[in-house]
Amino acid sequence: HSVFKSLLFFGAGAVLTSTGERDMEHLGGLIHRMPQTAFVFLVGCAAISALPPLNGFVSEWLTFQAILVSPQLPSWGLKLLVPAVGALLALSATLAAACFVKAFGVTFLGRTRTPAAENARETDRFSLAAMFFLAALCLVAGILPGFFIDALAPVMQALVGDRMPVQSNVDWLSIVPIAESRSSYNGLLVFVFMVLSGVLAAWAIHRLASDKLRRAPAWDCGYPEASPATQYTASSFAQPIRRVFGSVMFRAREHVEMPSPGDARPARFSVELHDLVWDALYAPIAGGVGFAADKLNHLQFLTIRQFLSLVFAALVLLLLVLAIWP
């Protein structure tokens, strides 16, 4: 996971550096101005969406293999809990795929929405080299996962006291997490199949399709002078999912301000979200840290006499602690 997440962070940083924008609603069309960044970012999106033959699919597949052996667990609680976790994992993978379809589509596809996106340029070659290296690592780890599993085996042994069987000795570079009669995965064969299928499909299209050209005006859906504002936005793309999960998980509320007929003001649409986990768990901690930081901030405005007195008091307190400490 660290590989494709690092790749995605690199890609987001490249877009931020090139455009100065953090809001996807202000981007679009970057595939024409940053094609190499778009390509490696697409690899990262496919990997985090657990699509074969990349490393994200292997990690997801191994997790599901562990879930499938949950009936062998001794505790009935775990027997019921682990399949539920598997269902949540499948749901999270689906939502991750939808999320990164939105991220890539809104950021790199379509037309530019702002001058910042219009003036974007490809990032520097050192950043590109790092991103291409990570993208290649995502592919290699997905095609030949056994070598990476064996390389990480000592870490797993130290953390959990156990490890998977040695995978580099399995025939045809497959991985067998439990038993060959139960399940196995061969990333190399999947990769070869996908490449051959793509080549065969391209050959069939070029061979069998008509080579005659027909030119006609593109269908504009009744908007002859289409504006970039009529494109799908990140908010509109996420609206169906937000309406399914948002009202319960995030207390989502949609507000529409529609002017009356004859009013020249534009219509406005806004969404109000509340992250319940953040509000319940992290917001109090963040508030406490902020309060302490505000109070400690006064220390930098002390006079020399006050500062020396504070240092002396801290030294005395430290000596008392050392004297009392057994």
Rank of each mutant, 00 (worst) to 15 (best):
P217W: 03
C138T: 02
V256P: 09
I178F: 04
V199G: 15
S168C: 13
L68F: 06
W76F: 05
P177I: 00
R243S: 14
G20N: 07
F132V: 05
V3Q: 01
S247L: 07
L196P: 03
F312W: 13
L322K: 00
R22C: 05
D279E: 14
A218M: 13
T230Q: 14
T19N: 07
A286D: 14
F148I: 15
P177Y: 00
S92C: 12
L281V: 11
F301Q: 12
V160D: 04
F301V: 08
P266K: 14
T123G: 03
S227N: 08
T114I: 04
F100M: 15
A96K: 07
L310S: 07
L128I: 08
P261A: 08
L152F: 09
F301C: 04
A116L: 06
A47D: 10
L159T: 08
E180C: 04
E21N: 11
P240E: 04
V3A: 00
A116I: 08
S59F: 07
R33D: 00
R305V: 04
L51A: 02
D171T: 06
M258N: 14
S227H: 09
K5P: 05
P53Y: 01
Q231F: 02
T94M: 11
F108A: 06
L276M: 13
P52H: 10
G262R: 07
C138F: 00
F237Q: 03
V244S: 09
A229Q: 15
R113C: 00
V195C: 05
A130M: 04
A116W: 02
F133S: 03
T123D: 07
A14T: 04
T123L: 03
V101G: 08
L318C: 07
S183Q: 11
G28P: 15
P217N: 05
A136E: 05
S260A: 06
K5S: 08
V176A: 01
L88N: 02
P74H: 01
F64P: 02
V256Y: 09
T63Q: 09
A209L: 02
E180K: 13
L296V: 02
L196S: 12
V248L: 12
L276T: 03
P224L: 06
D294T: 04
I175N: 00
V40M: 01
F245W: 06
H26T: 10
P266V: 07
G44K: 15
I324S: 10
V271L: 07
F301L: 07
A201Y: 14
A130D: 00
D294Q: 15
N169Y: 05
M24L: 06
F108H: 06
H32N: 07
E180R: 11
A226V: 15
S70H: 01
A280K: 03
S247W: 10
V40G: 01
P154K: 13
G56S: 09
C221H: 05
E257H: 06
M131T: 08
A204I: 01
V170I: 10
A280E: 10
A93H: 01
E225G: 07
G288R: 10
F147R: 14
T114K: 15
